[in-house]
Design a protein around this nucleic acid. Structure first.
Lengths: 335, 335
DNA sequence: CTGAAAGCGCTTACAG
DNA sequence: CTGAAAGCGCTTACAG
């Protein structure tokens, strides 16, 4: 391994000067500069990140915690992609933690051990002790997607309540009164809000969702399939189903397919997230799209501001609105 | 930030002793040990990773380069997941690079700058200069999924040629003689091999694939859809199509759906990878499944062995076989 | 069993 | 404009 000392010896300068050239310090004469640069080339020198980080107390790496990075029917992949892009254009690198909520201790540890300069959480829950501890310490942290009320850090989210309400209004405008929801009764804030928005929107139109059409569900394709079969098998069944995320909607649609129930003629289905598969002809799903790149951009901005200036004023919570994307599952013309 | 010095002061011992307790050194008396441990607790001490890495020349982090982590219709998500699991159980952490082949320089730089102890490539191509440079330097590197012939590093792959051949044989056994391939003419080794295996397998059965049924394609859903429309629109059309990955197959299936061509009655379709969506009723796709967790496990083993012992013998290339999963698109009973 | 000390490879005041 | 030196926070021989 070649160090700055090796380069210095080769270029016949002091080690300090090598460091200055590396950082484009203006106070280096042109000829020395060139000598050092050619020594860089000759040796293939790359500065040791640990030595640098130890001196500067800055690694240039941001940690990102996310569940289901690897499951593209969630919207996390899109969000992570966008965060990665924003970070890259700010010259920062990214470490990804993919173990779901259980990786929060890892993230906090990473901050405390100096492995990263700050962390963006996309899947924080109010239960995470580790996160709380980090926030109390005042470490640079930003929450996005899921929010925690009163958390001592910056947050950027979308308005999931309004998103759910958009779907309800669309169903009502389509003349539907027999409505069902799938998902949204668990602890995850975003999911709860979508469901609440939907129920509120329906209630505003004078429609109530029967309890048995609002069963608890986890957020998997299998759950969508199972609840879809259940909701659609009886004689008295809903004519429009709102699924709290696209993945559940795919399950419900496949259940309808299996039961030979025609969508959208006899059943409307809507999802949430607008993952890429939602637009495929096999599903062509009406869904709610969040402004993912805005979320990502603002999250990165917020974090970098804190990293650059630890005590930069009070914490902020910014919120974006979402957009209803109409497709074939609620009667729009197929693409 | 609390350092080992702070802990030492609090526990009334030397800083060296703190370090020993941290590493469970046997040569520490029990009472001192307890004193230090309680000082750890009181201060919330976490060792600085950079200082440690600088001394030990080991970070405990492995880099993984992969394209399309974030696109679950590729098999990378599964592979990454498996690699992550293997690394975790070996006490290693993982950094993920997701920018595709263009991130190879980043990976090499990360090795040279000491940011990671080694790198696993899942998407190497023979063109990557950066990778070659790293291999010449003898840095710990393992190639998995895609191989590079004669590369100066360990490799673990699956036998894509046999995989393609399995599909051809299955088509022939189904009585099909009008066969087509979608994908596999580009630079990516795995894709080329699958196509080659398929063509060879067909030829072994006396069947030749017409040139116009073997058009160039990139590896997107849209390409599958477009080529599907093209192959299936004419009067003389193939009765069985092998798609080089599942994503293309989904596009072809949706093209058939649009053209109202019945699968499997009038058309057989097979893919490659067995991504999760392939088993959904909407597709129920016959496909080839690779032993992903074996790949991952061996890749990690190989890398850690090199990291532990830089010159541990000659380079090795291990290869696993794959398995044909029969589903509805080639006539199996729906699940 | 414990401590003092060297040193990993940088960055950056401090002199000159 | 350049160099000598301090110091970031650890680990680990070396003494005792």
């Amino acid at each position: 391994m070649v160090t700055s000392r090796d380069v210095a010896r080769l270029a016949n300068v002091s080690q300090a000067t090598v460091s200055r050239v590396l950082h484009n310090s203006p106070s280096v004469s042109e000829d020395i500069r060139l000598r050092v640069l050619s020594a860089f080339k000759e040796t293939g020198y790359v500065a040791n990140v640990h030595a640098r980080a130890m001196r500067t107390r800055r690694t240039g790496i941001v940690g990102v915690v996310s569940g289901h990075i690897v499951s593209p029917w969630y919207f996390y992949p899109d969000l992570i992609d966008a965060i990665g892009t924003s970070l890259a254009s700010a010259g920062q690198r990214m470490i990804l933690w993919n173990t779901g909520d259980s990786s929060e201790p890892v993230a906090v540890d990473a901050i405390q051990s100096g492995a990263v300069d700050g962390v963006i959480f996309t899947t924080a829950t109010s239960e995470s002790e580790a996160l709380k501890a980090a926030m109390v310490k005042g470490a640079p942290i930003v929450l996005t997607n899921r929010s925690i009320e009163g958390a001592a850090c910056d947050q950027v989210t979308t308005d999931n309540v309004s998103g759910g309400r958009l779907v309800a209004r669309h169903f009502l405008e389509g003349g539907h009164t027999k409505l069902a929801v799938v998902g949204g009764q668990g602890v995850i804030s975003t999911m709860r809000q979508r469901r609440t928005g939907f129920l509120t929107g329906a209630a505003d139109g004078g429609v109530t969702v029967p309890v048995r059409w609002d069963p608890p569900a986890d957020y998997t394709y299998a759950a969508g399939m199972e609840l879809g079969m259940q909701l659609l098998s009886g004689r008295d069944r809903p004519t429009a189903i709102f699924c709290i995320n696209d993945l559940l909607a795919f399950g419900v649609l496949d259940a309808a397919r299996r039961l030979k129930i025609a969508v959208p003629d006899d059943l409307w289905v809507a999802g949430y997230d607008d993952v890429e598969i939602a637009s495929w002809p096999a599903f062509d799903l009406t869904t709610v799209r969040q402004p993912v790149s805005s979320l990502a951009q603002v999250a990165v901005e917020m974090l970098l501001r804190r990293i650059g200036n630890e005590k930069a004023g009070p914490f902020e919570h910014r919120q974006f609105s979402s957009e209803l994307i109409l497709r074939a599952t609620t009667g729009a013309q197929p693409a």
